Amino acid sequence: MIIMQPGATREQISTVIDRVHANRMEAHTNVGTRQTIIGVVGDRHNVPADQFESLPNVQSVEPVLKSYELASRQFHPENSVFSLGGFTIGGDEIPVIAGPCSVESRQQILETAQAVKEAGANALRGGVFKPRQSPYSFQGLGEEGLEYMAEARALTGLPLVVEVMAESQLPLMSKYVDMLQIGARNMQNYSLLRAVGETHIPVLLKRGLSATIDDLLNAAEYILFGGNNRVVLCERGIRTFETATRNTTDINAIPVLKSLSHLPVVLDPSHSTGHTSFVSAVAKAAVAAGADGIIVEVHPDPEHAFSDGQQSLKPEEFARLVKQVKAVAEAVDRTLVPEETPFFPNGVING
């Protein structure tokens, strides 16, 4: 990690980057409010530090102690903040993402989108390709589902968060979605992570069922290394010996991740508990612990949902959750994203 002196010129920064490339390494530049930090990625064993220390306006050359270099706070001390539609993730305002596990029909997704919008949601989630345990379970509507999601966006103004399962789906997804979701089962699908890193579409990266925090951050590193710095980490519960809930919510992960990484952190209380009766409590706990957002499953008729009905809130239950989460956010000196936010193309604010 090469730290430049405050006031270093573009030419001096370019000189350092050229030297990095001359040594067959990659340079990732973080321009902060006071100074610029250049993250050097690659085989550094035979490259002496004084080769960079002698360059004009280089303050110091420091080793990165973590295997995830670009995701670490050492490389990027400030929180990453970027926009999704008309709101930001990673700042003081907390967005709420909501929608069904699966897009089942045009009527179902349009009804859900309108309901969650009225309740205060800022983005719409919905699966169109579903990773199911059994090959005979509902696998999603594919592009037909994406068309329904796009119609819901046009109706409500809510940006779309949709899970991608394979590299081959990326060209199709890029035509429709505003944020790609990497599911828990694909968290360590490194070829998919690399491909998503090249898209520059915002990414919601879910923690794997048995993944450590280091595993999650190293998975994020693959996306960041590809050049995509709009990555959101998602705690969604991990598999433990406990069977009272679907998974065990690791609330610890929220403050730990935020101490180790500059990336925004959200929590999924639906998958982490697996039961509608526990979703609200865990969502409030997440905000109190410092989460930068929550993602919740909502369905107009959970009893007849094609998937995950047992953990999906009804629209009226979701509306109550939003009001309660808002109160918790205000108690910890934060606020929810205002309900009326204009939709505009995604852009980096500080990422």
Rank of each mutant, 00 (worst) to 15 (best):
Y190T: 07
K314G: 05
P95E: 00
P131F: 07
L267I: 13
K206N: 07
D308C: 02
P63H: 08
F344G: 10
I109H: 07
K284P: 01
A49W: 09
I97H: 06
N350A: 10
I182N: 06
V16K: 00
V282F: 11
D43P: 13
A305G: 03
I37D: 05
R106S: 01
I294L: 14
H299I: 08
E104M: 03
S312T: 04
L209K: 10
L263D: 10
T240E: 11
A49F: 09
S168L: 02
T249P: 14
G127D: 05
V337K: 12
E11H: 10
N30S: 02
T212K: 10
F306W: 12
S14I: 01
S168C: 03
I254C: 11
R320K: 15
A71N: 09
I201S: 04
Y190N: 13
Q59E: 13
P135R: 00
K206L: 02
I182G: 02
A150S: 06
I182R: 05
E69W: 07
V16S: 03
A154G: 15
M1K: 08
D333V: 02
H275K: 15
E93R: 15
I349M: 11
L65V: 06
S134P: 03
V96R: 08
G39A: 15
I295H: 07
A166C: 11
T112Y: 03
D250F: 09
H262Q: 06
G227V: 02
N23W: 05
V232L: 04
L204C: 14
I38M: 06
G351A: 15
E242D: 11
L217K: 04
D178V: 04
E340F: 05
P100E: 08
G145R: 06
S60E: 14
G347Y: 15
N57E: 09
V348P: 06
G290M: 03
L267P: 13
L205R: 05
R230V: 03
M149V: 04
R44V: 14
P255Y: 09
Q108P: 10
L205W: 00
S60Y: 04
T15V: 08
Q51K: 11
G309N: 14
T156A: 00
V298E: 02
D268W: 04
L321C: 01
G274T: 10
R207A: 04
A319R: 14
D215C: 02
I97S: 11
G274N: 11
G127R: 08
S83I: 01
I37F: 07
E167W: 09
N30Y: 05
V16L: 06
R10G: 12
A71I: 13
F343W: 09
E167R: 15
S210L: 14
F343A: 07
Y222L: 01
I251A: 00
V31I: 11
G145S: 03
I94P: 03
A327F: 01
L257V: 02
P100D: 10
A184L: 05
S60F: 02
A329V: 00
V40P: 13
M187S: 05
L192Q: 01
N23T: 10
D301Y: 14
L55K: 11
H262D: 04
P302N: 14
M4F: 03
S261H: 08
S137M: 06
A331S: 15
G293C: 09
R24S: 08
P302F: 15
K175H: 15
T245E: 06
L172W: 13
A253L: 05
Y136N: 12
Q181K: 10
